[in-house]
Nucleic acid binder design. Structure first.
Lengths: 201, 201
DNA sequence: AAAATTATTTGACTATTCTCAATAATTTTA
DNA sequence: TAAAATTATTGAGAATAGTCAAATAATTTT
């Protein structure tokens, strides 16, 4: 009888897309790749499930392998969608990540999602064990900071039509995929207004 | 006659506040401090002078020693202020910094400013010579990303009064210092509306 | 396939903010 | 210090987007 090598039989989840994305920012040494293989946790979130709730501590940074996710907060009980993110991007609560405080925002799956999660604890270890990973982190943040600037710009536009036009330009893949109500809330207009804007093309 | 030691006579500009701020994010080894001493350029910008113009390449990251600065872009010829920054913070064009493209935004002094500038070229050298500085860069970006999220949130609020209330909470030092028209534009409302909001406290 | 749920559209009306114009206050410059 | 320039306030009417209610369409569940 053969005693199989357990290591070989361990079902390894697929981190190749994550690695490819990170590699794009800065070449990853082998050690980091196997660290990620060991310390990422595959997760699934059904449509509308919450990844993170405002007021709670967020413990993970999430890499979306497939699906769509949004962040939202509230104004007078009304939801304000602050970002929408598709597959191959990362999401998390920057407040929890940066200063270890409970997050201000909710994070919710808009579609069924397949996700890889890394705990902040392991992320911290990653930075310590592989100082080079700080370069990756820095460049990732530079990119996400640029995205945040774009969001702030859109929200500041005054005409609903201008907002939607700009949205179409920046997120062409979202218009026919993300429910209108989330897009409306992202643009800080009502869904009725967005519906009318769309009709007038 | 004495031939003075040139090194000693070189007037060193004061980088102590910059060092203190960076040090707060991550302890700076001595080598980085002297690099900064050598590669920062003191500059002054009078009120309303432009640090950076949209469409041009931005070449520097600026540390504001004193004064106030804003970033703005345009919608139908109208200015949209996207951020306002006071002394002891950094400003730059994230687009130019991250992907070496001409910047989308204008950056303008709101008050007379004393500034320390570091060229992107030297910043890049800093990252290369002192890999540890990537930690500083990463943490700085985490902080600025949080700020960007707050900006995006404010702009998405629907009532002018709510925007101003939130602004007061987040930037208590600005209300009595920054001209109303810039605050209005930052909140994505007209100055007339902000003036009325203020009257109704 | 039908029922139930959820999402989107439409209409009528309302509230808020914008626009334009004029005036007042403040700051800067000559 | 007076004049000029800039910034802030106020009023009236117009435009835009919001609210509420209902109908329709699309999607999901049974």
């Amino acid at each position: 009888m053969i005693t199989p090598d357990k290591k070989v039989l361990l079902p390894k989840h697929d981190i190749s897309v994550l690695v490819a994305v990170l590699n794009y920012f800065h070449p990853l040494p082998e050690g980091i790749v196997s660290f990620l293989q060991q310390h990422t946790v595959p997760m699934r979130f059904g449509k509308k499930k919450m990844l993170v709730k405002a007021g709670a501590m967020c413990e993970y940074i999430y890499f979306i392998q497939s699906g769509a996710v949004r962040g939202f907060s509230k104004e007078d009980g009304k939801e304000l969608t602050t970002w929408i993110t598709l597959e191959h991007e990362m999401v998390s609560s920057i407040t929890s990540l940066d200063i270890h405080e409970p997050c201000i925002e909710n994070i919710q799956a808009i579609e069924d999602c397949v996700i890889l999660a890394i705990s902040f604890e392991n992320l911290e270890k990653l930075y310590q064990k592989f100082p080079e990973f700080n370069i990756v982190g820095r460049k990732l943040l530079q990119k996400y900071y640029r995205d945040a600037e774009v969001r702030a710009y859109i929200a500041r536009l005054t005409k609903a039509e201008n907002k939607y036009r700009y949205f179409l330009k920046v997120h062409p893949g979202m218009a026919n995929r993300i429910p209108l109500k989330y897009i409306a809330s992202y643009l800080a207009i009502t869904q009725e207004t967005l519906s009318r804007v769309r009709k007038n093309l």
